[in-house]
Every structure is written in structure tokens, then in C-alpha cells.
Amino acid sequence: TAEAIVEREADYKARFANPFVAASRGYIDDVIMPHSTRRRVARALKNLRGKELSNPWKKHDNIPL
């Protein structure tokens, strides 16, 4: 009936539509709360400011066809 559907939907949302459940199971690394998003992004960009890429030497090149 309709009550059973509503109850099962609430159970599904509590078990699966929750980022904290996914984080506890290891599917995602961290849950970023909305009030700390700007701080987290700024810190990540600050850490990447001086990063230099070191790509490996190319062993082979494309031959002209």
C-alpha cells in the first residue's frame, strides 16, 4: 500500500542516500560540509601553487604516415 511505499522509501533514503554512510563504507574519501567548502578549496589550491610536473621521457615517437 501507499504507507508501505513511503516507509520503504524513507528506509532507502536513510540507508543509501546519505553521504556519511558512503564515507563510512569507504566509497568516498571525505564529506565536505557546505560551510567549509571555500576554505577547503583555497587550501588545496595553495598546496598546488608551487607544483611542477615531471613527465617521464618519451621512449617512442609517432612516425609520420
Rank of each mutant, 00 (worst) to 15 (best):
A10K: 08
Y27P: 00
R40Y: 14
A22K: 14
K58Y: 09
I32G: 04
T1K: 03
L48K: 10
E7R: 03
N62S: 00
N18Q: 06
W57H: 09
A44W: 15
R49A: 15
R49V: 11
N18E: 00
L48N: 06
R49Q: 15
G26M: 04
G50N: 12
L48H: 01
A10P: 02
K46N: 15
R49L: 12
Y12P: 01
A42V: 13
R8I: 01
G26D: 03
K13M: 14
N47R: 15
G26N: 08
D11N: 02
K59V: 10
L53M: 14
I5H: 01
P56G: 12
L53Q: 12
L45H: 06
N18C: 09
Y27M: 12
D61Q: 08
A10N: 04
V31I: 10
R40T: 11
F20G: 05
D61R: 09
L45Y: 04
E3R: 05
A2D: 09
L48Y: 01
L48S: 12
A42H: 14
R38E: 10
N18L: 05
S36T: 14
H60M: 08
K13Q: 11
P56L: 10
N55A: 13
E9S: 03
I63K: 02
D11W: 02
P56Q: 10
E9H: 04
M33N: 09
R15T: 04
R40W: 07
K58L: 11
A4Q: 02
H60L: 08
T1W: 00
K58W: 06
K59A: 09
A14N: 09
H35A: 14
F20H: 13
D29C: 04
T1N: 01
P34E: 05
N62K: 05
E52D: 10
G26Y: 06
R25G: 07
I28K: 05
A4H: 03
V21K: 06
G50C: 05
L45K: 15
R43I: 03
K59E: 12
H60S: 08
D30E: 15
R39W: 11
K59N: 04
P64A: 08
R38I: 04
H35P: 03
R15K: 15
Y12T: 06
S24G: 12
A14F: 05
A17R: 09
T1D: 05
I5M: 01
K13D: 12
W57N: 00
A42D: 15
N47C: 10
V31M: 12
K13A: 11
P64E: 08
V6F: 04
R49I: 13
L48W: 10
A17H: 06
A2C: 07
V31Y: 15
A42S: 13
P19M: 12
R15M: 07
V21W: 00
H35N: 15
